[in-house]
């Protein structure tokens, strides 16, 4: 069976004036269905560029990218749009929700652009289901500016899930969140991964990476190391530990 993601000698070069800046070079990587991978590295290591290519937002300069066995570099703009819509769910660091649009309508958006046509009632129904999955059923009518950062990110995750993609890509999903909320979000990811969704996540936080199953470390556009996570953290347990610690602090004061 073909791997979910297969990168072969992937290279992405940016042209800044006269100078060629290699952002990703000679990256070969294979990710199977059901994996939970953290791509790590310092800023400028090429991890975000890699992520954009994986998300079909950007095209590699050379090399091959096979998503579910399909060579993405052969596809046109519309086909890439359909891939982003159907196969991939994207979660951004800055949430990227449409402002002045309710949580529910934000989640419906990928359904609106879907080639499978659902009635507006079915769309609403489906959006409510995924909002329930991320535990925000009671916030359906709220606008992003009425939600906390963690809630906004959960709405963004729900939006990424609404078309039942096989791959969830997250670019620094906890970058704008405090540690408790970060654990919360990682809990959501772990639950989704347990249900069979493959997740690739970019982060530069070591402790966040420990919630995943496999860590890929990049430097200067190349893969430095690639190994399974030893001593993987469980978000539910960590959450309990954190609460206990907070209680202890409160009691002490």
């Amino acid at each position: 069976m073909a791997a979910l993601i297969q990168l072969e000698h992937l290279r992405k070069t940016y042209h800044t004036g006269e100078v060629e800046v290699p952002a990703v070079c000679e990256v070969s990587l294979r990710i199977e269905q059901g994996e939970f991978v953290a791509v790590m590295g310092a800023s400028g290591s090429g991890k975000s560029t890699l992520m954009n290519i994986l998300g079909c937002l950007d095209r590699p300069t050379s090399g091959r990218y096979l998503l579910d066995g399909v060579d993405v570099s052969d596809l046109g703009r519309n086909e890439l749009a359909d891939l982003r819509n159907q196969k991939i769910g994207f979660v951004f660091q800055g949430f990227n929700l449409l402002s002045r649009t309710s949580a529910l309508e934000n989640i419906e958006l990928p359904l609106v652009y879907s080639q499978r046509s659902l009635s507006s009632r079915q769309q609403r129904e489906r959006a409510r289901q995924v909002l329930d999955v991320v535990g925000l059923a009671d916030r359906a009518g709220h606008h992003p500016n009425q939600l906390s950062g963690g809630q906004q990110q959960r709405v963004a995750i729900a939006r990424a899930l609404v078309n039942q993609p096989s791959l969830l890509l997250a670019d620094e999903p906890t970058g704008n969140l405090d540690s408790a909320t970060s654990i919360e979000i990682m809990g959501v990811f772990q639950k989704l991964n347990d249900e069979g969704i493959s997740i690739v996540m970019v982060t530069h936080e070591l402790d966040i990476a420990r919630y995943t199953k496999r860590n890929v470390v990049m430097r200067d556009g190349r893969i430095l190391s690639d190994q399974p996570v030893a001593g993987r953290l469980n978000a539910a347990e960590e959450m309990q530990r954190l609460r206990a610690a907070q209680q202890a602090v409160q009691l002490a004061s």
């Binding site: 519309n78 749009a81 958006l109 990928p110 652009y113 990424a160």
Partner: peptide, 16 residues
């Protein structure tokens, strides 16, 4: 522009 980017990222085609 950013809104357009978001819409494209979640699967809007050019003609949408």
């Amino acid at each position: 522009t950013r809104e357009i980017g978001i819409r494209m990222a979640i699967g809007a085609r050019g003609h949408d």
